[in-house]
Design a binder for these strands. Structure first.
Length: 401
DNA sequence: AAATCGCTCAACCGCATATCT
DNA sequence: AAGATATGCGGTTGAGCGATT
């Protein structure tokens, strides 16, 4: 696992690219695709290392890059995703078509981070800096739970990104690379996992998915939901299904065992991989797709992540997730309330002094949200609401998918 | 006009991971 | 299985540029 010599080689140029170099790189990739980045500089007649060429292409030269100012929507997306994913710029970038991870990272570091800090929000935790005030009202628990959810979402994003790459390769494998338009699609992906299950196996352990964009097919009386990260099977009126396959099969089962009432019936979450005790969920009525598929009764969610199994009774909605314990217990207080995207956005915009506020079409008399008193925490609540909304909308909403 | 400061962002660096031999 | 190589990712740097003093 030695490191590649890359730019250590003497004689290779570093620093800013000249227009001539850009032209050479562009011309070569347009004609041949990038192929092996390591071999490219020689073939293209560039005195650069492959790494430098790849970076130049992915961050600057590729034709599908959108440059210029970030829109309000993009800003909001970045902030929300950062709250969920942290500094996982490539994952965030999958939700922002035509923006590179580097660009997003730069924008975060130079604009958004500062803006949040100004607002008294810790840009790392996305919580108010004086969060001690919240420790008694459940908000901290909620934040911790969101962190757990974020891990799941993170895994989902990774797998979805992989699937996108794979599907693009499948659909256009005969095209030169430059026609793929997305630097995320490259040679190394061709040999990647070719099924959802395989994709799942590539996800790092201890993570799983908790929501996603599901496609659906039916098999018999039940059905199969397939997301880029997992396959969900279900059967109506079936009793809870016990975990299967864990142990001899690297694939694990995650079960969603729902109640038809969707009421406050308690649910259970078990994480075998961590030898966690069964944990309870209340009022789980989430994932409208599940309901739509008639899954309120019984679900078997096959995830190839690792030895995690999950059962839920009741259905799961943002409105009703509650927590009753510590650690990994999924217990969401009424974090979500009415789903209004405007909460944090207003807070953000009203506190923004480094950009025009008028282009967002926000009403100036919309409650202020200036970050003090109860409004402040109300805004914070809405902030998380909007994050969760974002999670609930799969990346497939994005034109990129 | 010159010096200084602060900001932006392209590019580099080093590590982690995937793939190849 | 182990080592070598290739690629991807996130943190950091520093050149360039405009604003300020």
């Amino acid at each position: 696992m030695g490191r590649s010599p890359c730019c250590d080689k003497v004689g290779l140029k570093k620093g800013p690219w000249t227009p001539e170099e850009d032209q050479k790189l562009l011309a070569y990739i347009e004609e041949h695709g990038h192929g092996s980045w390591r071999a490219l500089p020689t073939k293209a007649g560039l005195q650069r290392c492959g790494k430098s060429c790849r970076l130049r292409w992915t961050n600057y030269l590729r034709p599908d890059i959108k440059r210029g100012k970030f829109s309000l929507q993009e800003e909001q997306t970045i902030i929300q995703l950062h709250a969920l994913l942290g500094n996982r710029w490539s994952a965030i970038a999958t939700h922002l078509p035509k923006r590179t991870d580097n660009e997003i990272k730069n924008y975060w570091n130079t604009h958004l981070k500062k803006r949040l800090a100004k607002m008294g929000i810790d840009p790392v935790t996305h919580k108010p800096k004086n969060d001690a005030l919240l420790s008694n009202d459940g908000q901290s628990k909620n934040a911790a739970n969101l962190s757990h959810m974020a891990q799941w979402e993170s895994a989902r994003l990774e797998a979805e990104a992989r699937l996108v790459r794979e599907s693009k390769l499948r659909s256009s494998h005969s095209l030169p690379h430059h026609q793929l338009g997305n630097p995320a699609v490259h040679a190394s992906s061709i040999s990647s996992a070719s099924t959802s299950a395989q994709l799942l196996n590539k996800i790092e352990p201890s993570r799983s998915t908790w929501n996603g964009g599901w496609s659906r097919s039916t098999e018999g009386s039940g059905g199969v939901l397939e997301s880029p990260t997992s396959t969900l099977t279900f059967s109506e009126n079936a009793p809870p299904i016990t975990t299967a396959g864990v142990g001899e099969n690297p694939m694990a089962m995650i079960e969603f065992v729902g109640s038809s009432s969707g009421s406050s019936e308690a649910g259970i979450v078990k994480e075998e991989g961590e030898q966690q005790d069964w944990k309870r969920l209340e009022n789980s009525t989430h994932l409208p797709e599940y309901k739509e598929a008639g899954m309120e009764n019984s679900l078997s969610f096959t995830s190839g992540v690792h030895d995690v199994s999950m059962s839920m009774e009741g259905t799961w909605t943002p409105e009703s997730l509650r927590t009753s314990g510590t650690g990994h217990v999924l217990h969401f207080g009424n974090v979500m309330g009415d789903q209004e995207e405007e909460g944090f956005t207003n807070l953000l915009l009203n506190n923004s002094d480094d950009r025009s506020l008028s282009d967002g079409g926000e009403d100036s008399d919309n409650g202020g949200g200036s970050g003090s008193g109860s409004d402040y925490y109300e805004d914070n609540k809405n902030y998380w609401n909007s994050i969760l909304n974002l999670v609930n909308s799969p990346p497939s909403d994005s034109p990129m998918f």
